[in-house]
């Protein structure tokens, strides 16, 4: 059995350019195998120009990482398509398709080694085969998909794709044409004053009883709780998952990646790794989706 790989998923937040550069500088030195780069949430975010992302990508590649460019999830304009064509047109790095426009562009360019991103809604083997025939070699499982359904897909997929499961982070749950951060400040998206820059991990949304429920991150809505499958590592292994995706956060990133690495390498028991991760999380854990339950629930893995 091949060794499970560790991936850092695409950055969901909007940080100043230098903060982003510093972040990826640390990532280059971290024990991660794969790094997803690029702006996948909001086309108005441009602290990092495409050329900056290519610089980051080259540094990461020189450090021995596999680099993948994540495409924008919500494409609205011709300029969004232009950026997409640039990503697909470059020869050096793989692309993660997060929208069917990206798939169309990848097919047009004859790519045969791309990643079917979590927002492509691949839920059954027939759809997986459609994308596999067009060159998708890795499948990032939609977070809402339960382990059981994933197992069913894999059992019937031929060829079997490399499988990547989101294993840590606030879950991206929804995307909108509307910017909820701008809305909070009574601004329109087109004149948003880039308020996301002041919220390194989005804005907490609470119920009127004060319960942390969601996180507003521009046009994206995330969970408030932090998805964490460290305790479910034996099941992930048993299902043949090839890659674990950890999503970026503003603090303790290096410690988290090291903890995941040690858990994957068997240097620490999954339950202990999960226990240790609690101190590194900005909010309580959840893992319901993996267990086929409401995403915000938390289940203790069977021993």
């Amino acid at each position: 059995m091949t060794q499970m790989k560790l991936a850092l998923g695409p950055h969901q937040y909007y940080w100043p350019r230098q903060a982003m550069m510093d972040f990826y500088g640390h990532v280059a030195e971290s024990p991660v195998d794969i790094v997803y780069v690029g702006e996948s949430v909001c086309s108005r975010r441009h602290e990092m120009r495409l050329d900056d992302w290519f610089d980051v990508a080259r540094v990461l590649a020189e450090a021995g990482k596999e680099v993948v460019f994540s495409s924008l999830v919500l494409i609205e304009s011709e300029s969004d398509l232009k950026v997409l064509r640039k990503l697909v047109g470059q020869p050096d790095f793989r692309v993660e398709a997060n929208d069917m426009a990206a798939v169309q562009a990848l097919i047009g360019a004859g790519h045969t080694h791309w990643v079917a991103g979590p927002t492509l809604n691949v839920f059954n083997p027939e759809t997986m085969n459609v994308f596999a025939e067009q060159g998708a070699t890795r499948w990032a499982v939609p977070p809402e998909m339960a382990r059981e359904a994933m197992d069913g897909l894999l059992a019937a997929s031929d060829p079997r794709p490399e499988v990547e499961v989101t294993a840590y982070g606030r879950l991206p749950l929804a995307y909108s044409a509307r910017c909820f951060t701008a809305r909070h400040f009574n601004l329109q998206k087109d004149t948003c004053e880039f308020r996301c820059l002041q919220h390194a991990e989005g804005m907490p949304l609470k119920t009127r009883e004060g319960e942390a429920f969601l996180t507003l991150n521009g046009i994206q809505t995330q969970s408030a709780k932090v998805y964490n499958l460290l305790g479910d590592l034996p099941a992930l292994r048993a299902s043949g998952v090839d890659v674990l995706r950890v999503l970026p956060q503003s603090e303790h990133m290096s410690e988290l990646l090291s903890l995941f690495r040690r858990a994957i390498d068997g240097e620490i028991a999954p339950a202990d790794a999960f226990a240790q991760s609690q101190a590194l999380m900005p909010e309580a854990p959840c893992n319901g989706f993996w267990h086929g339950k409401p995403g915000l629930e938390q289940y203790v893995a069977a021993a």
Partner: peptide, 21 residues
């Protein structure tokens, strides 16, 4: 629908049932 249809798991997150599945 305020969210992009087909790209919203809010209901699944809260209840386990989603428009998608």
């Amino acid at each position: 629908c305020v969210m992009v249809e087909g790209r919203c798991s809010l209901s699944a997150y809260a209840t386990g049932e989603s428009p998608n599945c």
